[in-house]
């Protein structure tokens, strides 16, 4: 778990860190659109420069991003190999055996897929490394606000998300404590076959769930005592402010978008 970079926050002081989470979330989606628009050397080149520039601006060392890719490496290799072996015929055929075709088209395509994976993972790693989970939650619920029109309980969902995030470290601590207590009673975690490992999780999960329910009960009493009635009729302490740098970043992305539109193979 400890070398799993994706989904972790790295507190630094950079332009990327200071961007509005709403801007970052929307740009991350927009970036994926850009990645799928790119289809030749020039456009991928533009994207690579773009991504490296964003990473550089975040002051986070490249090593973190490479570590972020590692857990997903097998997925990437699998997809690339699949693409390489089973692409439809096109261009020069390098190798042919039964239903396996390695063609020029396949080689180029699998190369692009590889780069696509790499770029998307790097950018989403940048989002999570440079944005606190809480800010992502605030950003998401702010972006979901229009859904109020179709009666989605956005405020309640936002409250649930924020409480869930707040209790992650608390429950992690608790899980560690329970594991240690059960180890002292002779339970082996992470030993033996799959079935045995799954079975050893029962003495962890049962007390963890019980305590989580107790906490939930306590928390709801405390919230009620502090005047919580429902999520709709509340004012907001934490608000997001869209700043000039957010607009500027958007403009840069739109210029990138225009460049990709101009140079892509139609």
């Amino acid at each position: 778990m400890s070398n799993f970079i994706f989904g972790r926050y790295l507190p630094l002081n950079s332009v990327v860190h200071r961007l509005d989470p709403r801007a970052k979330l929307m740009l991350s989606f927009f970036y994926i659109v850009l990645v799928f628009m790119a289809n030749n050397l020039v456009t991928y080149g533009i994207l690579i420069v773009f991504t490296l520039a964003a990473i550089f601006a975040s002051k986070i060392s490249l090593g973190f991003f490479l570590k972020g890719i590692r857990p997903l490496l097998w997925l990437i290799v699998f997809t690339v190999v699949l693409q390489l072996l089973f692409s439809p015929a096109g261009g020069h055929v390098y190798f042919h055996w039964a239903f396996i075709n390695i063609t020029q088209y396949g080689v180029v395509n699998s190369g692009y897929i590889f780069i696509r994976f790499l770029l998307i993972i790097m950018m989403s790693t940048l989002l999570t490394l440079s944005t606190q989970p809480l800010d992502i939650a605030t950003g998401l619920s702010s972006l979901m606000k229009p859904l109020r029109w179709v009666h989605v309980p956005v405020d309640t969902l936002a409250m649930m998300l924020s409480i869930a995030l707040r209790f992650v470290p608390t429950l992690m601590d608790e899980a560690t404590k329970i594991m240690n207590a059960q180890r002292a009673r002779g339970v082996d975690f992470g030993e033996g076959g799959l079935f045995k490992q799954a079975k050893s999780l029962i003495p962890l999960m049962v007390p963890l769930f019980m305590s989580a329910f107790n906490r939930a009960e306590d928390l709801s009493t405390a919230m009620e005592a502090r005047g919580y009635q429902d999520s709709e009729h509340r004012s907001q302490y934490r608000i997001l402010t869209w700043q000039k740098r957010d607009t500027v970043t958007w403009i840069i992305f739109i210029i990138g978008f225009a460049a990709i539109l101009a140079f892509r193979r139609w």
């Binding site: 809480l134 924020s162 409480i163 995030l165 707040r166 608390t170 107790n214 906490r215 306590d218 928390l219 009493t221 405390a222 919230m223 005592a225 502090r226 919580y228």
Partner: peptide, 14 residues
């Protein structure tokens, strides 16, 4: 009102 368990009455993220 203040309750017994410090963790179970902390609602905010900070």
């Amino acid at each position: 009102m203040i309750f017994q368990n410090p963790d179970n009455q902390f609602v905010g993220a900070t």
